[in-house]
Design a protein around this nucleic acid. Structure first.
Length: 722
DNA sequence: ACATTCAGATAGAAG
DNA sequence: ATCTGAATGT
């Protein structure tokens, strides 16, 4: 292959990064500056020019999507799969290490990863079992405490209690850890901590990997936390080369322990590491880019970097003040339809919001107009109740000691194991320090329980054993099919009524086909197909399977939009209290992170950016009036164009960016307000969108839910305010 | 033991 | 508004 191809089309800085001799370096890469390209070309360069074996390369990312993309692009650039190269997420790679060395890591061969939902349930049980007041010791907070300590590399025995409260958290941490260890359960933080400890305690294993990975590349380095940093530091050792790519302005995961300061730490620890800045943006038109730059200078803690582009001005940013969230959604959908009418494709459009809960209203509006959409993140397939139930059976089949799975399905469907029987099991397991399954078999074998409870529990134990036996010779998807059927799960859901039940059955069937389509990854050495599938469900369920190539509007949170780009971007709900979020205004130091999040949002847009906010919004069942976000004010007016209602009656000056009510005064004499919901005897419910004139002759425009928009004369319409 | 009803918490992001 | 766990009824 012609090596010069690897540098073709790169700018000077990009070339410097790609073609540097193997060494440690920092690439400060602004949004849209081609950092993935640099990473991909760097990997190729190391193999082609520096003659590094793929076996010696490790590339670490945060999301599965980023890992998959990098892998795909490297393979494409080099015309074929590069065997032996490790590309994956921190969690994925840690998992792989633990599987390969589970004995040295002190884990059973069939250890299972649990997600935060399982973790929370476990903690709830535990806190209850410790006779602690759940109000005073919320499981959520325990989870947060434990996660935080694991991020810092701390075990309960490392912790010193300075007050009785902390002392109790440590006790909970300890009990939780013991119960996980007994059951062979590993939470997300544990994956990282344990693989770090593996190296710490087994120097020969560390030496092996240090020896192997002479070049390590890390993407989105600003998102690394303490344990990840320590992990990388240890692996790199004195011989390896660590290339980190990141952007301090896009650090948006501080809340889960990410330390931007790790970039500085890297520069100190890796003395002599070169810094390369990528500041040319290839993504956005200059209006959008300038707006982003203007916003981010309001942050004080920056490394200093200003993006520039050769692109032309482009369209101004459109700002829309909506009456409420429904109006906002309708506006967005209307613009998307226009885009589509002009020949644009739906998949060019992304709707970005601060929190997942905001997607609902938008979905409704899209559904109404029959526009296809796809949601990233949020409720994932493998998070669904029925799927988790089915998977819990599989987990128990795989590992009888999996208490989280046991608790979940002992009595699902109900089989006579109620509070009474269950507390017998829990007590026994607590007394003996055993798992629930062990407790159950122990009690049965020694005839320590009798009556109804005993026979119910016996039946359950026999059921699981039978399922395991029945399924021994079957393919994975047949196993799941069998288990779902014979466990009684399926009929349980079939007996439920309503649309929900129907979709639950469909999801269970979908699970079977997901299993049928599951290919065991070639990096899962020594794993059974089931173990790999179970791990996949926890670790990689995020990226949806179907619809990926359909032409659909993309819906996602601002967080999950990082790393992506779209020709048309809508940022919705840009209001004080939403974005920046309420919590961030209260916690110190979080505001700058919110601003970075806004920066991330703006810089996703290539050609057109819409920002909208609602003057009134229904939140937690209450009507709220928010002010426009401070971030809007921080964007210079010259980059912004305000959008008004279709028929312009109002004076532009009256409809200023931050006016909230003055223009409504004369109109209010009619008794109605813009954005108000009204009921019409014939046309049904609608929203007041616009008005003309005043007094009894006043005509108002109403957007009816079913019939679309109509102009009506107030005095004849006999509207009922809602 | 199970089904139904009720009250109260809860809406911040991802692996 | 929606979901969860507890209280209540059968």
């Amino acid at each position: 292959m012609d090596v010069s191809l690897l540098l073709d089309g790169l700018n000077d800085e990009q070339r410097n990064a790609v073609a540097a001799p193997p060494s440690s370096m920092l690439v400060l890469a602004g949004a849209g500056s081609g950092k993935t390209r640099v990473l991909v070309h760097r990997l190729a360069w190391l193999m082609q020019v520096e003659q590094c074996s793929p076996y010696s390369l490790l590339a670490v990312t945060f999301t599965n999507k980023a890992a998959a993309e990098m892998r795909g692009r490297v393979d494409k650039l080099l015309n074929g799969r590069q065997q032996g190269m490790w590309i994956g997420t921190f969690h994925g790679i840690a998992h792989r290490l633990l599987r390969a060395h589970h004995l040295d890591a002190g884990l059973p061969a069939e250890f299972q990863i649990i997600d935060s939902d399982d973790q929370l349930r476990l903690l709830k049980r535990l806190i209850k079992a410790m006779n602690l007041d759940e109000k005073q010791w919320p499981a959520k907070q325990a989870m947060w405490y434990i996660g935080g300590k694991k991020d810092e590399g701390l075990r309960p025995e490392h912790l010193q209690a300075y007050d009785p409260i902390e002392r109790n958290w440590i006790k909970i941490y300890q009990a939780y850890q013991e119960s996980c260890d007994r059951a062979g359960l590993v939470d997300f933080g544990e994956l990282l901590l344990r693989s770090h400890e593996l190296w710490l305690h087994k120097p020969h294993i560390l030496a092996h990997y240090q020896d192997r990975f002479s070049n390590i590349l890390v993407d989105e380095f600003q998102d690394t936390n303490n344990i990840q940093y320590a992990w990388l530091r240890m692996l790199t050792g004195d011989r390896g080369n660590l290339m980190i790519v990141g952007d301090d302005d896009q650090s948006i995961y501080g809340w889960r322990g990410a330390q931007v300061a790790n970039i500085q730490r890297f520069l100190t620890d890796f003395d002599g590491a070169k810094t390369i800045k990528l500041e040319q943006n290839y993504r956005s038109s200059s209006n959008i880019l300038n707006a982003a730059n203007a916003l981010i200078v309001n942050n004080s803690e920056r490394m200093g970097k200003e993006l520039w582009t050769e692109d032309n001005e482009g369209d101004p940013i459109s700002l829309y003040a909506s009456f409420n969230e429904v109006d906002e959604a309708r506006f967005v959908v209307g613009r998307i339809k226009e885009w589509q009418d002009q020949g644009g494709s739906l998949s060019d459009c992304a709707i970005l919001y601060r929190s997942n809960a905001q997607s609902r209203v938008v979905e409704d509006a899209l559904l109404q107009e029959q526009l296809a959409y796809r949601i990233y993140g949020g409720h994932r397939f493998f998070d669904r109740l029925e799927i988790k139930d089915a998977m819990a059976y599989m987990r128990l089949k795989n590992n009888r000691d999996d208490d989280a799975a046991f608790e979940r399905i002992v009595n699902k469907p109900t089989r006579g194991i109620g509070d009474r029987a269950l507390s017998l099991l829990r007590d026994a397991s607590r007394e003996q320090g055993s798992t629930l399954w062990q407790a159950a078999t122990y009690l049965l074998d020694n005839n320590l329980i009798a009556g109804r409870a005993a026979s119910s529990i016996r039946k359950f134990v026999e059921l699981i054993t039978a399922l395991d036996n029945d399924v021994a010779e079957l393919a994975l998807h047949e196993q799941i099919d069998h288990v779902v059927l014979y466990s009684g799960l399926k009929s349980m859901y079939q007996l439920e009524k309503g649309e929900k039940a129907q979709s639950r059955i469909e999801n269970l069937e979908e699970l079977v086909s997901a299993a049928r389509g599951f290919k065991i990854p070639d990096d899962s050495e020594e794993m059974t197909e089931l173990s790999a599938f179970l791990a996949f469900a926890v670790l990689e369920s995020a990226e949806g399977q179907a619809d990926e190539f359909d032409d659909a509007v993309q819906l996602m949170t601002l967080h999950s939009a990082k790393g992506l780009e779209f020709p048309v971007v809508f940022m919705i709900g840009v209001e004080e209290g939403m974005f920046p979020s309420q919590q961030s205004t209260e916690e110190s130091g979080r505001m700058e992170e919110e601003r970075r999040l806004c920066y991330v949002g703006i810089t996703r847009a290539m050609k057109k950016l819409y920002i909208s906010y609602a003057e009134s919004r229904r939140l937690y069942g209450k009507e709220m009036n928010h002010r426009p976000s401070r971030f809007i004010r921080e964007i210079p007016e010259k980059y912004i164009e305000e959008i008004r209602l279709k028929t312009q009656i109002r004076q532009p000056t009256q409809f200023g960016r931050f006016s909230a009510g003055s223009e409504k005064m004369s109109f209010e004499s009619t008794g109605y307000q813009l954005g108000q919901r009204v009921l019409h005897a014939k046309f049904g419910e609608g929203i007041v969108m616009n008005y003309e004139g005043s007094g009894p002759q006043c005509r108002i425009q109403i957007e009816f839910d079913q019939l679309g928009s109509k102009w009506l004369v107030v005095s004849y319409a006999r509207l009922q305010a809602l």
